[in-house]
């Protein structure tokens, strides 16, 4: 039952994010565009590039979708409303998101096209930049919650949301999350002006539809993870818990998309440099600060 509810909520969330993305990129808010686009994509030809690695080419989008859905599985919509409340939920989320990298490299390498290949390998660099900044803030969150279970993590924020308890971690996590979902300005593997579509460039028709759907699922998953780890999940007054989760998730997604359309694309070397010189130092400082606070203050 709860699985069906969450899948439905995810579908609605993806649609809403697609609408928001249309607004951020094309400057128009249209409620019907994602539906017509998806339907139109189904009717277009699916082209298989010559001399492609068929296995990589086909598996890329599917693996991406699987990775997205598995990470959604550990995000609680409300108390008890979660697909699998794993004891190692936060770690599992991390593991599932690692496949985003694999999927994108496969999708980039598969078609044997220059833009795609550069895009795929660029994403590997991007991964090296964001990976630590996903893991380290989550560690600090787990320190406070004394658990890796996502439900426990939400409950640990009853007195004070983590966004106030560990603001450095929040900022680092959101930026890293934008990297995972290759949202502008960190859309290095696909940037239109840089790589003319990059890893997405050779996908057409239904394969492109699956790829786009997978990306939406990943955006929702990451926005949901941000809400779970930092914004108190379902916690909130007056409204039922699932409404709070949904509202907060959409707000985070909208924030990330709006931020993206106002910033110029980050260069790979710069992103790596910022992440490793500034990001990791801050993330370690965050762990240390949270460690001290957690020992001194009982909340």
């Amino acid at each position: 039952m709860s699985i069906a509810v969450i899948i439905l909520a995810l579908a609605i969330g993806c649609y809403a994010v697609a609408v928001l993305e249309g607004w951020a990129v094309h400057g128009r808010l249209s409620l019907t565009r994602p539906a017509t686009s998806a339907l139109a994509l189904l009717g277009r030809e699916q082209i298989l590039p010559r001399t492609s690695d068929r296995l990589f080419f086909e598996v890329g989008p599917v693996l991406l979708l699987v990775a997205g859905l598995l990470s959604v599985a550990v995000i609680p919509l409300a108390p008890g409303l979660i697909i699998t409340d794993l004891a190692i939920g936060a770690l599992f989320l991390n593991a599932a998101l690692a496949y985003v990298l694999v999927a994108l490299i496969m999708a980039g390498w598969g078609p044997n096209g220059a833009y795609g290949m550069v895009g795929g390998w660029r994403f590997l660099g991007q991964f090296i930049a964001y990976a630590m900044l996903i893991v380290m803030p989550i560690t600090a969150v787990a320190m406070r919650a004394e658990s890796l279970s996502t439900t426990q993590i939400v409950l640990s924020q009853a007195a004070l949301w983590n966004i106030a308890y560990q603001p450095i971690g929040f900022v680092l996590f959101v930026i890293a999350a934008m990297g995972v979902a290759w949202l502008p300005p960190i859309d290095l593997p696909t940037g239109g002006g840089d790589l003319a579509g990059g890893v997405e460039a050779e996908y057409t028709g239904a394969r492109l539809a699956v790829l786009r759907l997978a990306r939406l699922v990943i955006i929702v998953a990451l926005a949901g993870a941000t809400v779970t780890f930092y914004l108190g999940g379902w916690l909130g007054p007056w409204l039922p818990g699932w409404v709070w989760t949904a509202l907060k998730t959409l707000a985070v997604a909208a924030g990330m998309l709006a931020l993206g359309s106002r910033l110029p694309r980050l260069r790979e070397a710069k992103y790596l440099e910022l992440s490793w010189k500034l990001g990791i130092t801050l993330a370690l400082a965050n762990i240390f600060l949270v460690g001290v606070i957690a020992l001194v203050v009982p909340i």
């Binding site: 951020a24 990129v25 400057g27 859309d187 940037g191 239109g192 993206g260 110029p264």
Partner: peptide, 11 residues
């Protein structure tokens, strides 16, 4: 602006 991904400035 289009090249660097600043959509709103480009528009």
């Amino acid at each position: 602006a289009r090249q660097v991904g600043l959509f709103s400035l480009s528009r």
